[in-house]
Design a protein around this nucleic acid. Sequence first.
DNA 1: GCCCAGGAGTGTG
DNA 2: CACACTCATGGG
Length: 283
Amino acid sequence: MRVDTKICPLDLDLTLGCGQTFRWRKAPNGLWEGPLGNQFIRLGQKGSVVHIEASPGGRVVEELVRTHLRADDDVRKIQKALAKDPVMAAGVSELKGLRIVKIDEWECLMSFILATYANVPRIAKMIETLSNRYGERIVAGVHSFPSQERLRRASLAGLSKCGFGYRAKFIHEACRILGVDVLSEFKRMSSKDLREALKQLPGVGDKVADCVLLFGFGRLDAFPIDVWIERALGRLYHRRGSYNRLRGFAREQFGPYAGYAQEYLYYNERLRAPKGTCVFSEE
DNA sequence: GCCCAGGAGTGTG
DNA sequence: CACACTCATGGG
């Protein structure tokens, strides 16, 4: 199976390797591997074509991958809109194929509760531990992300043995609070109301809420601010201050595609800047 | 050993 | 509103 990316650029390495998703691994043979829903997926890219393998096989895999990679986003239009900002204009040229990922709402919420104050490798490890203990086996050594029903049955004592630290309690309490159909109700809410609803949950503050809005619910105007984004805004835009202050600046500066701007800044600040070749430049 | 990490919760001024 | 402190723990 294949997804043609000729119409609009899509770069698997940029998209799956930039830290916005935690379960994909690049195998030594160059293929990206990971669980997606209840299937184990392998993705490879040759030029403008993405090859898909799934086990167990299914007919809806391509649609699953297309949704996950947001293959229908018109990133050229998005980058053109963002390029009215000179910093963006100078920096997006090598990130044309970087796309925001669309993660399952439940998986995204739990993942970013676990992600608080941890680095990306550790987050990936925690999510793998959670999946191995509470998810269902897909193929040898790979488990799906645990469903609401299964995770709700997890005891605090069990979660506390997973090496999550104080996050174990947040996961446990969030599972108790969330009803079965709450997430489908969330999907119909405005971004503003959804953000407030998410922040009611234990372990969900401004940053986690914005991550879940962006990566889980596909609200492209959300602008999560972590330590890397805070640095980038200070370094490139000379902006500092509270979360809400920075968020206000981002909304005004980047508009409805602030989420994409955030991902470009994040990639540059966390993955590119240490190498010394900054894509983005000051002024 | 150190410092840091896709922070949140709580209390205080 | 802002800041200060605490919370557990693994990676570099």
